[in-house]
Write a protein that binds this DNA or RNA. Structure first.
Lengths: 123, 123
DNA sequence: CAGAATCCCACGTGATACTG
DNA sequence: CAGTATCACGTGGGATTCTG
């Protein structure tokens, strides 16, 4: 399995602009990262570089609670923990792809409308 | 055109549980309400009964800014303002339907997983 | 009727530092 | 390596009151 692309989530696509969200701020990115197979904690931190460990843990726990991912601790030294999508979690992949598709197709129109609005009102 | 169903958004489906969001908290509901045609401010407040006027205005403005809806003021007494979906806004209907479909199909599984998780950890 | 003005708070998120 | 522990903060959202 290939390593995750560090630039998988380009800063040029800030989530603040994206009008669609799955779960909390980082959930969709995590799920996308797990598409190819199980990943380790540190491995996830590479493409999702702006997330702090605390928040990543938080989000992973929430996803586990909702049955989206499993958390497997391997009794080794050093410790190794792997996260993997459940069948339920996999059902979100289609939805995420639908959101991506919408963004690719309509984000420019949205941003253009926003620009017009911001320029036709008092700056 | 039929009036909006006051129970269109049943309290039994709290948005806190729904893992998918379009825009901010009320955006998707507003867009769904506008599907059949233009609606007035007060008209929107019927099915979306938990929203305060301030927040509704806020959300409508944001949707207008992003080119999702148009706001038309009719010079009458009493004042009449109508909100209507733009073609761009209409593109979100499919996405919303996809989210609804996901919910109908998978929410029970999610809630069941959550129950198990909450009961297998210390209460 | 369709909001505007104020005040306010909780919560999601982040920064930083430390540990089994 | 895979987290915890604190502390802190902005802002999305709400309650209430008032108005053209």
């Amino acid at each position: 399995m290939d390593p995750l692309d560090p630039d998988m989530f380009h800063p040029g696509c800030p989530s603040s602009v994206m009008p669609i969200r799955i779960g909390d701020k980082w959930s969709a990115m995590i799920i996308a990262c797990l598409e190819q197979g199980p990943r380790r904690f540190s491995e996830l931190r590479v493409p999702i570089h702006r997330v702090t460990p605390k928040v990543l843990t938080q989000t992973l726990r929430a996803l586990e609670r909702d049955g989206m991912i499993t958390r497997t601790v391997h009794a080794e030294v050093p410790p190794r923990v792997e996260y993997e999508l459940t069948p339920l979690g996999r059902t979100l992949l289609d939805l995420i792809e639908a959101c991506r598709h919408w963004s690719r197709k309509h984000m420019p129109t949205l941003l253009a409308a926003r620009d017009v609005y911001d320029h036709t009102t008092q700056p």
